[in-house]
C-alpha cells in the first residue's frame, strides 16, 4: 500500500551532490529517474561525438560538444565535474592546436567514464525505489 512516509525515504548517493539534487528534484523521484536516464543516454552520445571531434583535430567542434556535455552533469548532481568541463571548454576556446588540449581531453574522458558509472548506479537505485509505488 502507498505510504507517504516511504515516499520521501529515498536518499541520493553521497558521492553525488545530495543537497543540490534534493533542491532540484524535491520529492519528485519519477522526474529524477527520467532525467538521470536521459542524461546518461545523452552523455554517451555527446561523449562519442566529442571523441570523434578530438580525433579529427576539430577543436571548435570539440568545444561545442563539451559545451553540450557540461550541463548534463549538473542534472545528475555532479557539479564539480560540470565545473571541470566548463574549464575545459574554456581551454578549447583558447587552444590553437589539437595537441594543446590532449592532456585535458584524456582527463575529461576519464572523469566522464567514472561519472557514468555513478549515474548508472543511481538510475538502478531510483528505479528500485520508484517501482515500489507502481
Amino acid at each position: 500500500m502507498y505510504n507517504e512516509e516511504q515516499k520521501i525515504s529515498f536518499r541520493f548517493s553521497p558521492e553525488l551532490d545530495v543537497d543540490f539534487l534534493q533542491e532540484l528534484y524535491g520529492d519528485d523521484f519519477q522526474q529524477a529517474e527520467m532525467i538521470f536516464e536521459s542524461s546518461a543516454q545523452q552523455l554517451r552520445t555527446e561523449l562519442s561525438l566529442a571523441e570523434a571531434r578530438f580525433h579529427d583535430g576539430d577543436i571548435p567542434g570539440l568545444k561545442k560538444a563539451v559545451h553540450k556535455i557540461k550541463p548534463l552533469f549538473g542534472y545528475i548532481g555532479l557539479n564539480k565535474i560540470m565545473s571541470e568541463f566548463a574549464a575545459f571548454e574554456q581551454e578549447c576556446a583558447q587552444a590553437n592546436e589539437p595537441a594543446s588540449v590532449e592532456t585535458g581531453f584524456q582527463h575529461m574522458r576519464m572523469i566522464a567514464a567514472e561519472a557514468l558509472q555513478k549515474v548508472d548506479n543511481e538510475i538502478k537505485r531510483l528505479k528500485q525505489h520508484n517501482t515500489q509505488y507502481l
Binding site: Q31, M34, I35, S38, S39, Q42, K68, P71, L72, Y75
Partner: peptide, 9 residues
C-alpha cells in the same frame, strides 16, 4: 533548446 534533457526538465 538543443539539449533534450534540459527541455524535458
Amino acid at each position: 533548446e538543443d539539449l533534450q534533457v534540459a527541455a524535458d526538465f
